[in-house]
Simulated assay, not measured.
Amino acid sequence: MYIYYPSCNFMKASPATEKKVKAYLKQRFNIGHTKCCRFENLSSLKEFTALTVCQACNEEIQRKEPTIQRMSIWEFIDQDTDFIFPDFKGKKMILQDCFRDAQNPKAYNAVRNIMLKMNIQIIELENKKENADFCGLLHYEPKDNKLKDVWKQYDNCKLSRLPLELQTQFMEEQTALYKNNLVVCYCNSCLRGIKLGGGNGVHLLDLVMQNQ
Rank of each mutant, 00 (worst) to 15 (best):
D133F: 06
L138S: 03
R28W: 01
L137R: 09
L166E: 10
S72E: 04
V202P: 04
P66F: 02
I114G: 07
D78R: 04
A107P: 03
C157H: 05
N181R: 12
L42H: 06
F83A: 03
Q174V: 13
L95K: 00
V53H: 02
K12E: 12
G198W: 15
L196A: 11
Y140A: 02
L182K: 11
G90D: 07
A176I: 01
K20I: 09
K46I: 07
F76A: 05
I114R: 10
K19P: 11
Y154L: 07
S189I: 09
N109F: 07
K19M: 15
R192E: 15
D133R: 15
L137Y: 00
K129L: 06
L205G: 04
Q62N: 12
Q96F: 00
I194C: 07
R161K: 15
Y5M: 13
Q167C: 07
T81E: 14
Q55F: 12
S44K: 15
L204A: 14
I122K: 01
Q169Y: 04
P15M: 08
E172A: 13
N58R: 13
I84P: 05
Q169T: 10
S7N: 09
C37I: 13
I73N: 00
A13E: 15
C54K: 00
N109Y: 12
K152N: 12
F134Y: 12
M171V: 01
T52Q: 02
A23Y: 07
F39C: 04
S160M: 08
S160Y: 12
K106E: 06
E172T: 14
C98A: 15
T81W: 05
M118C: 08
N200T: 08
K35W: 10
C36P: 07
V208S: 12
A110C: 02
K20L: 10
D206K: 15
K26T: 14
Q121R: 14
Y140Q: 03
K143N: 12
N119K: 13
K129N: 14
M118A: 01
P163E: 02
I194V: 12
